[in-house]
Design a protein around this nucleic acid. Structure first.
Length: 489
RNA sequence: GGGGGCAUAGCUCAGUCGGUAGAGCAACUCCCUUUUAAGGAGUGGGUCGAAGGUUCAAGUCCUUCUGCCCUCACCA
C-alpha cells in the first residue's frame, strides 16, 4: 500500500513545492475562474479567444520549447499546448521542471486544431493550481487491484471513465426519482437514523449507546414505521432516501450499509402502486438511457409495456407443480416439497411462510428475468402488510423481480391497529423463542396507529441493487463510492 | 463459517527445475517547437504482504497469520 512516506516520488515532489514558491507560484492557490469545462472547450471553433480551463494533468508530452498536456475534469478531457514563446522562459521552465502528472493547472488562451486534428487550447497564460505528492497510477493500464479500487476510490474514478460514469449515473438516477416523486406531490422527509427500536423489517440491527440519555440505541433497519407516522400526521404522500444498516453477512448482493428509497401514499392500494411503479421505472430508464431495453448480464431486458403480474401461488404451481393453497400447514407442505424431490436447507425449523419463500427462491426466482410483479405473499412473511380481503392467508403485497433480484417490495399497508398488535405479538413470541430476525414489539408505533390511518400503500426499493442491475454490476460495492473495508494498517 | 484464488518497484506485470531481483510506464539528469501510450541518450528505485520452517541456498517448497476477490452457507 502507498503508506510509505519516505519514497522517492514524495521527496522529489516536496522539494518541487519549495521551488514553486521560490519561482513565485503558490502551489495551492485559492481559486481559479473557468470559462469552459474541458468537454465544452473541445466543441469551440478555432480562434475563439479568452478560453480558460483547468483540470488534472493526465498525460504530458514535454519538449524543449513546446509541450502538449492532456487535462481532465469531471466533464472529460482536453489537450492544451504551452509554448515558451507565448508564456516566457521562466514560466515554461516551471512547466518543464516543476509540474508533474497528477497536478492541477489552469490556463488561459485560444482554441486551435493541431495538424494531427486535435482540438487544443493554446496557453497564453498559465496558473499552477494544486500539487500532488503521489504519482498517478500507470497511464495506460490504470489500477487493476480490486482492493485499491475500493479503498482509494478516487484513483478508480480518476483513472477509469467507466467507473466515473457509473457513479454519475447513480447520482442521475436519484435525482430523476426525486423529481418524479416531487412532481407527483410526494414530499421528501427525514426520519431518525438513530432510534430506540429497530423496527420496520426483519433484520439484525447495529447497536450503539447514547451517553447523554444513557440508553441503548439502534441504527435503523428501515424507515417504514416513521414514514407511516408521517401519514398518521396528515402528510398524504411522503418519501425518503433512507440509509439503512443491517448487521448481517456481507456478500456481493448485501451490504451492511445501504440506501432504500421508500414512499407511502394515502388512499392507494398495492395495485395502484404497481401501476405507479411501472410508470416510475419506465420514466427513470427513459431518462437515463433513452430506451426501455437495457442489457443486463448479457441479455436484453425489455421494460416496455405492461409487466406481468403473477401470484406466489400461480408461480410455484407453474414451476414445481405444488399448489401451496392445498397445504395449509407447515407439516403437510414440508411433506409435499420433499415428495417432489426438492431439497431445502433447515426445513424442520421453518414455518409455512418461510417454507413457501424458500421454495420460491429455489424453484422460481433464479429463472425470473424480465420485470415481473410477484404478488400475494404469505401473510406470515409480511407482518406489516394488509391481509387480503378474500384470502386471509395472503397479503396485499408485491415485489418487483428483475433477473432474479428483488428490486422493489411494496404492499397495501396494514392500518388496523388491533391486527397489527396481534401480528407484532406473534413476531415478539418468535423472537423470544430464538428467532433473531423476527420483529420487536413496537408500542410507540402502535400508539401512532391507534390515532387512525387512511388506506395506505407503501413501497421500498434497494437503490444500490437497482443501480447495480441497470449498470450491469454484479457486486453492490461497485455502485457504492466508499464500501466498508477492514483496515489494513 | 466452509471451499477456491490472489499479494514481486509508485502503477501494470514477468520471474523457468530452489542458484546474483526483471521489463514497460512513472521518477531523476540531459536533448528536443506539433505531440497524443511522443521520441532519443543516460541514472536511480525492492522488507518479493507478515512471521516461522525445510535447505549449502527460498520470490519460488512447507506451516501459520493478515488483507482482498470468487463461491457455498447465512441474510428480504
Amino acid at each position: 500500500m502507498a503508506d510509505k512516506t519516505d519514497n522517492e516520488y514524495r521527496q522529489v515532489r516536496i522539494s518541487k513545492l519549495d521551488r514553486l514558491r521560490e519561482a513565485g507560484q503558490n502551489p495551492y492557490p485559492e481559486r481559479f475562474e473557468r470559462s469552459h469545462m474541458l468537454a465544452d472547450a473541445r466543441l469551440l471553433d478555432d480562434d475563439v479567444q479568452g478560453v480558460t480551463v483547468a483540470g488534472r494533468i493526465m498525460t504530458a508530452r514535454i519538449m524543449g520549447k513546446l509541450s502538449f498536456i492532456t487535462l481532465q475534469d469531471v466533464s472529460g478531457r482536453c489537450q492544451i499546448s504551452i509554448r515558451q514563446d507565448d508564456v516566457g522562459p521562466e514560466t515554461y521552465k516551471i512547466v518543464k521542471k516543476l509540474v508533474d502528472i497528477g497536478d492541477f493547472i489552469g490556463i488561459a488562451g485560444e482554441m486551435y486544431t493541431t495538424k494531427t486534428g486535435e482540438k487544443t487550447v493554446r496557453a497564453k497564460g498559465f496558473s499552477f493550481l494544486g500539487k500532488t505528492l503521489r504519482p498517478l497510477p500507470e497511464k495506460w493500464q490504470g489500477v487493476q487491484d480490486q482492493e485499491v479500487l475500493y479503498r482509494q476510490r478516487y484513483l478508480d474514478v480518476i483513472m477509469n471513465p467507466e467507473s466515473m460514469d457509473r457513479f454519475k449515473l447513480r447520482s442521475n438516477l436519484i435525482r430523476i426519482m426525486r423529481r418524479y416523486l416531487e412532481d407527483q406531490a410526494f414530499m421528501e422527509v427525514e426520519t431518525p437514523v438513530l432510534a430506540p427500536k429497530a423496527s420496520g423489517a426483519a433484520a439484525k440491527p447495529f447497536t450503539s449507546h447514547h451517553n447523554a440519555l444513557d440508553m441503548e440505541v439502534f441504527l435503523r433497519i428501515a424507515p417504514e414505521t416513521y414514514l407511516k407516522r408521517c401519514i398518521v400526521g396528515g402528510f398524504d404522500r411522503v418519501f425518503e432516501f433512507a440509509r439503512c444498516f443491517r448487521n448481517e453477512g456481507m456478500d456481493p448482493s448485501h451490504l451492511q450499509d445501504f440506501t432504500m428509497l421508500e414512499y407511502y401514499c394515502a388512499y392507494w392500494n398495492y395495485e395502484d402502486n404497481m401501476n405507479f411503479t411501472q410508470k416510475l421505472i419506465q420514466h427513470v430508464l427513459t431518462e437515463l438511457f433513452g430506451s426501455l431495453e437495457v442489457e443486463i448480464g448479457g441479455e436484453k431486458i425489455d421494460f416496455s409495456g405492461e409487466w406481468p403480474r403473477v401470484s406466489f401461488r400461480e408461480l410455484i404451481l407453474k414451476d414445481c407443480d405444488i399448489d401451496i393453497e392445498a397445504f395449509r400447514d407447515a407439516d403437510s407442505l414440508r411433506a409435499e416439497i420433499s415428495s417432489k424431490g426438492i431439497t431445502l436447507e433447515d426445513v424442520e425449523k421453518m414455518g409455512r411462510g418461510n417454507l413457501i419463500d424458500q421454495l420460491y427462491k429455489k424453484v422460481s426466482r433464479p429463472q425470473m428475468t424480465g420485470p415481473v410483479f410477484l404478488t400475494k405473499h404469505p401473510v406470515d412473511l409480511s407482518p406489516l402488510a394488509r391481509r387480503n380481503d378474500d384470502e386471509e392467508s395472503v397479503s396485499d403485497r408485491f415485489q418487483l423481480v428483475i433477473r432474479g433480484w428483488e428490486v422493489v417490495n411494496a404492499y397495501s399497508e396494514l392500518v388496523d391497529p388491533l391486527d397489527q398488535r396481534a401480528r407484532l405479538e406473534s413476531q415478539a413470541a418468535l423472537k423470544a423463542s430464538g428467532d433473531d430476525d423476527a420483529m420487536d414489539m413496537d408500542e410507540d408505533y402502535l400508539l401512532a396507529m391507534e390515532h387512525g390511518m387512511p388506506p395506505i400503500s407503501g413501497w421500498g426499493m434497494g437503490i444500490d441493487r437497482f443501480c447495480a442491475l441497470i449498470t450491469n454490476q454484479s457486486n453492490l460495492r461497485d455502485v457504492v463510492l466508499f464500501p466498508l473495508m477492514r483496515p489494513n494498517d
